[in-house]
Design a protein around this nucleic acid. Structure first.
Lengths: 223, 223
DNA sequence: ATTGTGGATACTGTATACAATTTCTGTGGT
DNA sequence: ACCACAGAAATTGTATACAGTATCCACAAT
C-alpha cells in the first residue's frame, strides 16, 4: 500500500483545468483571464490561480502584460510559421530516434494509439485532436529522451493553440496515410524514412494551417 | 518621452538573481532553496520568491518535490546525453536558418560577438561562458524565429547547468576554429555547411562533457 | 460637440497570516 | 546500544490583507 492517494495540489488542478480549457478552445483567443473571477469560479484563492497562470504563460499559451493580467495568446502568421519550422525538425528527430530506440512494449503502444486515432469519429474534433496528440506523444515517449519530450510537449501545446485559432482540425485526406507511413517506418527501424515521413506530415499540415491563417478569421462576435 | 522608467517587478529581479546564481554555480547542485531563507536574504516576501522558483523549475534548473521545496537540479549522464542530442539538432537548424535569414546588421553583431569571445581571457570561466552563450544567442536571434529562440534559450540554460556540474568549461583546442567555421559558413550563406559546423561543434563539446560525467564528481563536502 | 482632467473603481503585485504536511528530536522500551 | 513512537519545530501550500497602478466615467472647459 505505498502511496495510492493523489496528493492533488490545488494549483496543479487549476493548471490542468485552465490548460484544458485553453487547448479545447473553451476560452476565446485574446480573452482576458481575471484572477479574482477565476478564483470565485473555481472556489479557490488567488494564490494557486496566479501560479497556474504563470506556468501557462511560460508554456506560451497565455500572454502576460505588466499590471494588466494575462490573455489567451493570439498567434500571428509569422509565429505559426516559425513554430512549424521547429516542429518539423523536432518531430523528424523524434521519429528517427524512435525508430532506433523503441522497445516491443513501445511498439504495442504505438500501434494502439494509431488505431484508436483511426477509429475516432471524424465529427468529434476534440476527441480527434486528443488522440492525434496522444499518437505523437507516444512517438516522443518511445524515444526515451527526456529533453526531447519536454521540448516537444511545449511545441505540441502551441500547435494545438494554433489549430484552434485557425479552426484547422486534423482531418485532411492524407492524414491517415501519413500517420501509417510514420509508424511503418518506425516499426521497420528505418530511421531516415521515419524522419522523412514525420517531416512531410508536419509540412502538409503546416501548409493547411498557414492557408487558414492568411485569410483573416471571421470575427464572429463583438460582445 | 515614451516610457523610460523601468517597471522593475520584484519577482523578475528575484528570478534573474537566482538564475544567475544557479548558472554561475554559486549554489551547489542538489542544494536546497528555502523560501523563507531566500526571502530574508533578499529582503522580500515569500510571494515573489515562490513565483521565481516556479519559473526556474519549469526552466529545468530546479527540481520541485511536493511539500519538500526545491533543489538545484543534478543532471545524470543520461539526461546530459539526451540534452546534447536535441541541442545538436536545434543548433544545426539555427545555424542553417541563420545562414539564410541574417541581415547585414545581424552579420555585424555576429562578428562582434565572436571577436569578443576570442578576446576573452582564458582564465575567466564566467566571462568566457557568458560570451560563448552570447555568440550562440546571436546566431539564434539572427534566425528571426521566435519559437526557435524560446526552445534554444531553454536548452542553453540546461547546458550551462551541465557544464557547471561537470566543471567542463569552454576551452578545448578546437573551439576557436569551430566557432570560426560556423560563422564563416553563415556569412557565406552556406546553410548546409553552417548546419554541419554547428553540429560538429556540439558533438565535440558533448563528448568532453560526457567524459567528465562518466567519472563521478568528487563529493567535496558532506556537511 | 469635443477634449482634457479628476476621481472612483477594479485589478495586479506584494506582504502577511493561517493550515497542513514533513522532518527532526527526545524519550521510552526492548 | 538500537529501534519505535510521540511531540515539537520548521517548511511548504493556501488564503487573505494591503499597496500601487491602470482603466473607466463623469464633468468641466474650450
Amino acid at each position: 500500500m505505498t502511496s495510492f492517494e493523489r496528493p492533488t495540489l490545488v494549483r496543479d488542478g487549476v493548471y490542468d483545468h485552465l490548460r484544458r480549457a485553453v487547448l479545447d478552445g473553451d476560452i476565446a483567443p485574446g480573452e482576458r483571464l481575471g484572477e479574482v473571477e477565476l478564483g470565485a469560479q473555481l472556489g479557490v484563492s488567488r494564490t494557486p490561480i496566479r501560479e497556474a497562470l504563470m506556468r501557462l504563460t511560460q508554456d506560451g499559451l497565455l500572454i502576460a502584460e505588466a499590471n494588466k493580467g494575462v490573455r489567451v495568446r493570439t498567434v500571428t502568421a509569422d509565429e505559426a510559421r516559425d513554430t512549424y519550422v521547429v516542429r518539423e525538425e523536432l518531430d523528424g528527430l523524434a521519429a528517427a530516434l524512435c525508430a532506433h530506440q523503441h522497445s516491443p512494449a513501445d511498439a504495442q503502444t504505438l500501434r494502439g494509439a494509431l488505431s484508436a486515432l483511426q477509429r475516432a469519429p471524424s465529427s468529434d474534433y476534440r476527441e480527434q485532436t486528443r488522440l492525434d496528440l496522444a499518437f505523437h506523444r507516444a512517438i516522443t515517449a518511445a524515444t526515451h529522451n527526456a529533453a526531447l519530450a519536454d521540448l516537444n510537449r511545449d511545441l505540441e501545446q502551441r500547435v494545438a493553440l494554433i489549430k484552434h485559432q485557425t479552426r484547422t482540425y486534423n482531418a485532411h485526406p492524407q492524414t491517415d496515410a501519413q500517420h501509417a507511413a510514420i509508424l511503418d517506418a518506425i516499426l521497420a527501424r528505418d530511421a531516415d524514412a521515419a524522419r522523412q515521413a514525420a517531416r512531410t506530415h508536419v509540412r502538409t499540415f503546416a501548409a493547411l494551417v498557414l492557408q487558414n491563417l492568411a485569410l483573416p478569421i471571421t470575427p464572429e462576435k463583438q460582445a
